[in-house]
């Protein structure tokens, strides 16, 4: 095991996969000259100069090229500089990549990974900070993956690249510099598998992305109140590991679902609905969501701290469901 940053782990996954399979190529804005805005594609141009394409600012074009190349047998890894910009390529993602296999009766395969740096990082306000996981969860034919640690980032990106269907790969910008252990060797994690990060008996916190770490911190604080909290990292939002989530909730009888995105119609809402449908008779309290209020991301740090959920929001929510 080595300790790497989140972005180093992603970079390692890209290099290893490109070494393994020469149908993989990288395409996006500034991916060569600057190594991408967060340096994830750094060094690829030196090692695989024929398989990295730096584009003009043309998200629909980039995404469409990815779809066509994928249908013609390649494995594109598309980088959208900030996930907010994927809205400029929504037809290509939603009407083309997602529906192609179904519309053609199974003839088409679109093995494409769409890397999406998302969420609040530096203070870049509303058009460079959105999350939008649930937008893509709602579209059949797309897979939505959200790693929370460097080890999972590497393992999930490698699996995403090997998937025969499109994957929206969410990279929370403010954990790019976080560090963690990364297993040696060809480390892959199946899509659709949640991870129990901490076992507990009294309540289950299902968390997404950076909320996993905060939930673990909250769980430590909640020990003082006498609550033994289980933390489940969803990791993959579509397909969603309903089995692991529901088994945990049925066992503990209490559930809090935490995401950084707006709770309203967000990923946490779907998870809460799944818990409600499957675990109702085991629940001893309401299922509560923790997330952002339903507002665009503001600029001022004084405002941002009232938007992005933090550890006290989680401890408060757990205390509430335990009452």
């Amino acid at each position: 095991m080595r300790t790497l940053t989140f972005s180093e782990a992603l970079r390692e996954a890209l290099h290893e996969e490109m070494e393994r399979d020469e149908t993989i190529f990288v395409i996006g804005e500034d991916v060569i000259t600057h190594g991408g805005p967060y340096k994830v594609t750094d060094g690829i141009a030196e090692r695989f100069p024929e398989r990295i394409f730096e584009t003009p600012i043309a998200e629909a074009g980039i995404m469409g090229v990815g779809v066509g190349a994928a249908m013609a047998g390649m494995n594109p890894v598309v980088e959208i500089m900030y996930m907010d910009f994927v809205t400029c390529a929504m037809d290509e993602v939603v009407n083309q990549a997602a529906k192609m296999r179904y519309m053609t009766g199974g003839q088409a395969s679109v093995p494409m990974v769409i890397r999406l740096p998302c969420g609040v990082g530096r203070l870049l306000a509303a058009q460079h900070s959105q999350i939008m996981e649930s937008w893509f969860m709602h579209v059949p034919g797309l897979q939505v993956v959200v790693p929370s640690t460097p080890g999972d980032a590497k393992g999930l990106l490698k699996t995403a690249i090997r998937s025969p269907d499109p994957v929206l790969f969410f990279e929370y910008k403010r954990i790019y510099t976080s560090t963690g252990e990364v297993p040696d060797g060809d480390h892959t994690i199946p899509l659709g598998q949640a991870k129990i990060c901490r076992e507990g008996e009294d309540a289950t916190v299902v968390a997404i992305g950076p909320m996993v770490q905060k939930s673990l911190e909250a769980a430590v604080l909640l020990e003082d109140d006498g609550y033994d909290v289980e933390v489940v990292d969803a990791r993959s939002l579509s397909p969603l590991d309903t089995e692991t989530i529901c088994e945990s909730v049925s066992r503990t009888g209490h559930a809090v679902v935490c995401g950084e995105d707006s709770s309203f119609a967000g990923a946490a809402s779907e998870i809460a609905a799944v818990i409600g449908e499957n675990c109702f008779r085991d629940l001893k309290g309401p299922v509560v969501r923790v997330g952002s209020p339903h507002v665009p991301m503001p600029f001022s740090s004084e405002l941002v701290k009232h938007v992005v959920p933090e550890v006290p929001d989680i401890t408060e929510a757990v205390s509430r469901v335990m009452m």
Binding site: G64, M74, Q96, A108
Partner: peptide, 30 residues
């Protein structure tokens, strides 16, 4: 669509085939 003939599909969205055709050409080049 008939992928056995590399006919990669009609398309219900106007103009949506242009970039994918470019992508298929990129695949040939690669």
């Amino acid at each position: 669509a008939d992928f056995s003939l590399n006919m990669l599909g009609a398309n219900g969205i106007v103009g949506a085939g242009i970039a994918p055709a470019t992508g298929a050409a990129l695949a040939s080049k690669l």
